[in-house]
C-alpha cells in the first residue's frame, strides 16, 4: 500500500484544528460561560494596564520608562503567557488529576505523544480575552512610539514572542511535570512561576542587582520580556544587555527543551522505567 509521507508539523496543526473546531462546538453549549470567561479575563487585564497608567502619571521617575514602554514590557509577558496558556495551561494543571483518576493511562493507550494530547485535550479559550486586550495596548504603544518601528524591530519582535511562547510553555510543562514526583505541586508553581515572574512586569532596573541576576541566570523569566523590551525600545545601556536581548529567543527554546527532558523523565518515572 502506498504510504502518504508524514508531515509532522502539518499533521499537528491539522489535528489541532479539528480539536479546536470540536471544542468550540461543545463550548457553544455554554455560551454564557464562554462569553463571561472571555469578558472577565479582558476586564481583569485591562485593569492592570490602567494601573500602569496611574503609576506612570503618579511616580516622577520610573527609570525613564513611560506608559508605552511598560505596555510593551507587560504586553510581551502577557501575550506569550496567554498563547502558552491556550496550548497547555488547562491540561498541565490537570496533570495531577489525570494521574490520580487514571485518565493518563487512557491517554497513554493512544498512538500519540502525551504532550501532544495534552495540548489537544483542552483549548484554553479563556486566554483569548488576554490576547485581545494585549494586542490593543501593544498597537497603541507602537503607534505612540513610531520612532522605534522598523523592519528590524518587527522581525525581532516576532522572534522574541516565539521565544517567549517557548519559555512560558516550557515553564508550564516543567512545573506541571513535578506532578510525576510530588502530588501537590500547585503551591510551588505559584511561588516560582507566578510570583517571581510577576516581578518582570516592572522594569528590572528598579530592583537590586542580585534579584536581576537571579531572574536572568537562575529562573530566567527576564528573557520573556525584559531584555526583549530593552532591545526593542533601545534602552540597552551596554553590550551585555544587547547580547541578552539577542539571546532571548534562543534561551526560550533551550528552556523548552530542558522542560521536555524533565517531563520525559517524569513520565518514565510514572511508567516505572527506572527512577
Amino acid at each position: 500500500m502506498r504510504q502518504r509521507r508524514e508531515m509532522p508539523v502539518r499533521d499537528f496543526f491539522s489535528t489541532y484544528f479539528v480539536y479546536i473546531k470540536t471544542f468550540f462546538r461543545s463550548r457553544a453549549e455554554y455560551k454564557t460561560s464562554f462569553v463571561l470567561g472571555m469578558a472577565s479575563n479582558f476586564y481583569c487585564y485591562l485593569i492592570t494596564y490602567m494601573s500602569y497608567w496611574v503609576l506612570v502619571n503618579g511616580v516622577d521617575d520610573l527609570g525613564g520608562w513611560d506608559f508605552s514602554d511598560l505596555s510593551i514590557l507587560y504586553g510581551l509577558s502577557l501575550l506569550t503567557y496567554a498563547v502558552s496558556g491556550m496550548l497547555v495551561w488547562y491540561s498541565v494543571y490537570a496533570l495531577e488529576d489525570l494521574i490520580i483518576s487514571g485518565q493518563l493511562d487512557i491517554m497513554l493507550l493512544r498512538p500519540q505523544g502525551l504532550l501532544r494530547q495534552m495540548i489537544f485535550q483542552r483549548f484554553g479559550d479563556t486566554f483569548l480575552g488576554q490576547i485581545v486586550v494585549t494586542i490593543i495596548f501593544l498597537c497603541a504603544a507602537f503607534a505612540a512610539k513610531t520612532e522605534i518601528v522598523s523592519l528590524q524591530t518587527g522581525i525581532y519582535f516576532v522572534l522574541a514572542v516565539i521565544g517567549g511562547i517557548f519559555m512560558q510553555t516550557g515553564s508550564m510543562i516543567l512545573f506541571g511535570a513535578f506532578s510525576f514526583w510530588t502530588m501537590k505541586s500547585g503551591a510551588l508553581i505559584d511561588m516560582l512561576f507566578y510570583d517571581l515572574r510577576g516581578l518582570t512586569n516592572y522594569p528590572l532596573v528598579l530592583y537590586p542587582k542580585a534579584l536581576r541576576l537571579f531572574l536572568t541566570f537562575v529562573l530566567p523569566w527576564a528573557f520573556i520580556n525584559y531584555y526583549p523590551t530593552l532591545f526593542i525600545t533601545g534602552k540597552s545601556v551596554n553590550g551585555y544587555e544587547t547580547a541578552l536581548g539577542l539571546a532571548a529567543p534562543f534561551v526560550g527554546v533551550l528552556w523548552f527543551l530542558l522542560a521536555m527532558g524533565v517531563f520525559r523523565m517524569g513520565l518514565r518515572r510514572y511508567t516505572g522505567a527506572g527512577g
Partner: peptide, 22 residues
C-alpha cells in the same frame, strides 16, 4: 471505570476525533 469519550461532546464528535487520532 474510566472513559475515553469527551465528556462535553456528542458521541459522534468523539468518533471524529478518534478517526483523526488513529
Amino acid at each position: 471505570q474510566k472513559s475515553q469519550l469527551w465528556w462535553d461532546l456528542p458521541v459522534i464528535d468523539t468518533y471524529t476525533l478518534l478517526k483523526k487520532i488513529y
